[in-house]
């Protein structure tokens, strides 16, 4: 009986020893030196792995930061962490942080089911990309929201929700980290990461329709009809292809109220600072 115990101990011990040796040598052979700066940077990052920075994940971004020189570093920005995180990262690197104003995602469409009533029934897989290929969408607007929520599905921060009543995605400005996932997801490019004004207000044209006024208006009551009322008020606003675009140089705090009231179809949206 004693022999058996000894034998067992020996055999199992031997197996364990051999396994340990193998592990040791493999770990030596495939040793990767840790990038300490990258690890330090990674610790500061939000670890959401959203890809908003353009890298595969936070650790990828961290190693890119650690390798970057001063000029390269100026182009690296974590939209989720924002200025706060980037200043910490810059401190680790010893560079000055890139200055970016806070921003949020905005949707350039107001084609809700009451404003742009459905003219056809969509009966296929719930995907904006598929819908975009097989038709102009329910409302008939070739540049409007398709109401299927591809953007909601990609948002990792719960900042986008689907409003069943209007059939439109809604951006929660409090939660939005401006990672840009929705910008990439929308097959019609209806999202934009837009900077907030000094007082935290937003001013933009919530339409992307380039059809002539009458054609656009036929499908959607909230469409920009290219009437040029806004560009008469502020010459920086350009109306091209029957569509007005408000550049960031137009100060939302100063012009917002006025422009939004002037727009006959309420396509210009002015939103004051989001309150908690």
């Amino acid at each position: 009986m004693d022999n058996l115990i000894w034998l067992n101990t020996l055999v199992l011990g031997g197996v364990a020893f051999v396994a340990a040796l193998v592990l040791y040598f493999v770990s030596r052979r495939f040793y990767v030196a840790p990038d300490e700066t990258a690890e330090k940077i990674a610790a500061e990052l939000p670890q959401a792995n959203c890809g908003g920075c353009g890298y595969a994940g936070c650790s990828d971004f961290a190693s890119a930061c650690s390798k970057a020189d001063e000029n390269g570093f100026a182009n690296l920005y974590c939209p989720v962490g924002g200025a706060k995180v980037m200043s910490k990262v810059a401190k680790i690197k010893g560079f000055s942080a890139a200055k970016k104003k806070p921003s949020v995602a905005v949707l350039h469409c107001q084609g809700t089911c009451s404003q742009a009533p459905a003219k056809v029934i969509y009966d296929a897989v719930s995907s904006c990309r598929i819908a975009n290929q097989i038709s102009v969408g329910k409302s008939g607007c070739p540049q409007g929201c398709l109401h299927l929520g591809d953007c909601v599905k990609v948002c990792k921060f719960g900042a986008l929700s689907f409003d069943e009543e209007t059939q439109m995605p809604v951006v929660d400005r409090k939660k939005c980290t401006s990672c840009g996932a929705c910008v990439k997801a929308c097959p019609r490019g209806l999202f934009e990461i837009r900077e907030l004004s000094a007082k935290g207000a937003l001013l933009y044209v919530a339409c992307r329709n380039t059809q002539k006024g009458a054609a656009a208006r036929k499908n959607c009551l909230s469409a920009c009809i290219g009437c040029q009322k806004c560009s008469k008020l502020n010459s920086e606003i350009k109306v091209e292809n029957n569509l007005s675009t408000i550049p960031m140089s137009v100060d939302a705090d100063e012009w917002g109220q006025q422009l939004a009231e002037a727009c006959p179809t309420k396509a210009i949206v002015y939103k004051e600072k989001a309150h908690a």
Binding site: A118, K119, V120, I121, Y122, D123, A124, V125, I130, A131, I134, S135
Partner: peptide
């Protein structure tokens, strides 16, 4: 109202 769907 007409229906839109994918093939088949």
């Amino acid at each position: 109202m007409l229906k839109v769907s994918t093939n088949p």
